[in-house]
Design a protein around this nucleic acid. Sequence first.
RNA 1: CGGGGUGUAGCUCAGCUUGGCAGAGCGCACGGUUUGGGGCCGUGAGGCCGGCGGUUCAAAUCCGCCCACCCCGACCA
Length: 570
Amino acid sequence: MSIVRMSAMFGRTLREAPADADSANHQLLLRSGLIVQLAAGVYSFLPPAWRTLRKIEQIIRDEMENAGSQELRMPAIQPRELWEESGRADSYGPVLFNLKDRRDRTMVLAPTHEESVTDLFRKVVQSYRDLPQSVFQMQTKFRDEPRPRGGLVRVREFIMKDAYTFDVDDDAFQLSYLAMRQAYHNIFDRCGVPVVAVQADSGAIGGKQSEEFIFLTEIGEDNIILCQSCGYAANQERAEFARSDAAGSDGELEEVATPGVATIDDLAAFLDVPASATAKAAFFLVDGDPIFAVIRGDLEVNELKLLTALDGLEIRPLLPEEVEAAGWVAGYASPIGVDPTRVVVDPSIVDGGGLVAGGNKVDVHLRHVTYGRDYTAGVIADIGLAEAGHGCPQCDSALEMQRGIELGHIFKLGTRYADPMDATFLDADGERRTPIMGCYGIGVERLMAAVVQANHDEFGIVWPHAVAPFDVHIVPLGAGDEVAQAVQQVTDALADAGLHVLCDDRDERAGVKFNDADLLGAPLRITIGARGLKDGLVELKPRRASEPSPTPLADAAEAALAAVHASAEV
RNA sequence: CGGGGUGUAGCUCAGCUUGGCAGAGCGCACGGUUUGGGGCCGUGAGGCCGGCGGUUCAAAUCCGCCCACCCCGACCA
């Protein structure tokens, strides 16, 4: 297929990792000379990295097409009006890169393509006969992230594979969704990255249900809640959990002096009751309104769940002066007497019986505060933050928590975009109907980072063959015609057999070459040196093997092919 | 945007406390030696010490402002 001579390769390896790099994959990608940073969250991809990205793209393309999706291309530059039409100009606002064209029209660099694909649909599809449809693209996305981080994990310009399905109804949608779901498992398998599918919050994309494909790793930025017994898995953002038994006690409302006791821990210790016998108040600003959230003292509030429960767009904790302005006393706040439309309670409160809560006066709490009798809430909803040790919502076993990177996300959009953008079709009865949409994303560079993170050792990258930039790395040692001839013979044979060969023809010492070979991580290394050739031998060493195996020069190419194909099985 | 940190040679970092000629290792170029896991010797190139302003006889060093990048939080593929 092709031969790259290392003396001519664009890019260089580094002995030391740049200080900015934290994670193993980031360090290795930099050290191996695969990527170079231009600005925060903006990277160049040098030839070997680009080869790997193209291989990953090809795997994705392959699986998408197997799942019946058709590749197309949509613009990266879009009129802002499109985003106003869907109602996302504001919710996505800060992340949008804005620019003006020469006619002073505001354009955006697309961070994702739900709007454009919905626009395409309404211009192209009219009849149920055209459905279902499934399309995908691999397109550069631009997001002005609040904080790029972790090398390629979170960047501002990146390639995303995004797919979209359109179905006549929910039942049909389920088939499309499951096909994509399976394709996703296949993609990550083929790239050599273990993933777990977890329930997720759909965030700014919108829609009803979604699943994330998570690579579990300590460098991940998401918290994943897992049950080892039944397999329940969810992002902490939306993970459910079983509340432990209530510890409240019933009785008349009763004031109790609690001087200087302003935290749940202090309160429980002071009164000698478990934290689960108390009620915790937490204050938030949701879309401009102060909200009084109540949850049992041993639990924390999940802000995202609270936001979802209120159907809100934006949430943050209330500032101390805002708490005061709302008439609430931090540390001693009581839900009693608060406008119920401002109050949200967790089920742990409703079922909790009489709990110790604030008295709305400094240094005073109330015993036996009982939901329904003493106060009510406009919203009762699960707003609890699931944590390790909590009960599994399915089987009540103890939950675990691990970090993970989100590599893919698949959503049921329902009619979130088709409705506001008026995308419809005519059904068999001539009725105008709205398609059920799904969307399915994968971050391509992020996937490459995960491949490296999941496949490396102390010496360098250990590429899975399917995405390796080179199939074989040839290391000639020593000058002389004999070596040169043998190298040429093996290199040509492998290239002719369709492999991508990297040949380290540099005038470097053996140690340098071996170290770079380990760093660059091709699946197979072939060492051709004067010493071995005296006995007619070369050495084959799969990157994963600890020791090389001597092989007669005459058999080298064939053995190498076999080894490469064997490594493809891994 | 809030909190923390770092900016000195291509990379890793000293020097800053206590102001006084810009440094080391690696890398790079050249020569020699060596030649199977980043070897050794020598010579050399390479710097607006992130930027602007201030203090001072004198600023990498002290002061102020700004910028960039990294880490922690709010956000996502």
